[in-house]
């Protein structure tokens, strides 16, 4: 009985001393330092899921300075990708090309990173590079290559070569884009200028600016008419003033027609670019969704 009592007391004293000590030690060892690698990783993952990619990237970078983890490298690269820092994203994805389980996904994301840098020529050179190719996502990369032809001024490849990479549901739409890109319906600046020289306003009507064209015609004709009638009524000052105005309107109408044709062509190009970009953006460039 006495022995048990002594043992209990001894146990109590030991626990009294040990518990606080071990608690403190545990705190310091596990999450005592909120800037420890593991805590940085936990916090980084939280930020990543909150879509605070810039801060998540900082945390992952710190974590990776002392630890090695392919998933986190992928997340770091993807964080850069999400905030539009495509060069850094591409560099980090590249680091996973060899000896990583995420190699295939990293290759696809690498190509996406290069693609979104808008340097499509470089993208196409890299897409043809055999070393970087992906066996799993090769078709997606190939499709991306053909999409890039719609987004810059490069010469389009053969029609069937482009179209065969896309699903049936979008074939007619893409064929339409292809035709528009290859044979854009532009207006000739020379024709517009010649028309306006012959009949004031005709150049503008040719470029679709009917209202402006008719206004030009009326303004030029009326000021010329006023100049003549004022000369006839012997109002020299007014006659010369309206003559000057008529000449100004006539010259302005020719210049305006050239400008109008240029604006028309730029608008066609702009609308086409916008339409194409929206079409592909809406379909996420036919890319599979990848996230880790």
């Amino acid at each position: 009985m006495l022995r048990t009592k002594i043992t209990n007391r001894l146990l109590f004293v030991i626990l009294l001393v040990i518990v606080p000590l071990t608690t403190i030690n545990c705190q310091l060892a596990t999450d005592g330092n909120i800037l420890s690698s593991q805590n940085r990783l936990r916090f980084g993952n939280y930020l990543y899921h909150e879509k605070d990619y810039l801060r998540a990237a900082d945390e992952f970078k710190e974590y990776l300075s002392s630890e090695s983890n392919d998933t986190i490298v992928f997340r770091l690269a993807n964080s850069y990708f999400q905030i539009g820092r495509y060069t850094e994203a591409a560099n980090n994805f590249k680091g996973l090309f060899f000896g990583s389980q995420l190699s295939e996904e990293a290759r696809l994301m690498f190509y996406e990173s290069v693609f979104f840098q808008n340097d499509y020529k470089l993208f196409r050179v890299l897409a043809d590079e055999q070393n970087f190719g992906s066996s799993l996502y090769g078709k997606d990369i190939e499709r991306l290559k053909y999409i890039s032809f719609f987004l810059d001024n490069s010469k389009l490849p053969e029609e069937n070569l482009v179209l065969k990479n896309f699903p049936d549901s979008v074939q007619s739409r893409l064929l339409n884009f292809y035709q528009q890109k290859k044979f854009p319906k532009l207006k000739s600046i020379t024709t517009s200028v010649i028309l306006s020289t012959l009949i004031p306003g005709a150049g503008k009507i040719y470029t679709g600016e009917v209202g402006d064209g008719i206004t030009s015609l009326i303004a030029t004709a009326l000021t010329a008419y006023l100049a003549i009638t004022n000369f006839k009524a012997d109002h020299q000052f007014r006659g010369w003033m309206f003559s000057g105005l008529a000449a100004f309107f006539y010259a302005g109408n020719i210049y305006g027609s050239a400008a109008s044709a240029q604006i028309y062509n730029a608008r066609i190009q702009f609308n086409f670019d916008n339409e194409v970009r929206l079409f592909f953006e809406h379909r996420n460039y036919f890319l599979p969704k990848i996230d880790y």
């Binding site: 109590f12 009294l16 518990v19 608690t23 403190i24 005592g32």
Partner: peptide
């Protein structure tokens, strides 16, 4: 012992 344990834990976390 339990009180001591939780107290130390809380104080330490709070301090941190």
């Amino acid at each position: 012992i339990f009180f001591l344990f939780t107290f130390v834990l809380a104080v330490k976390a709070q301090d941190r």
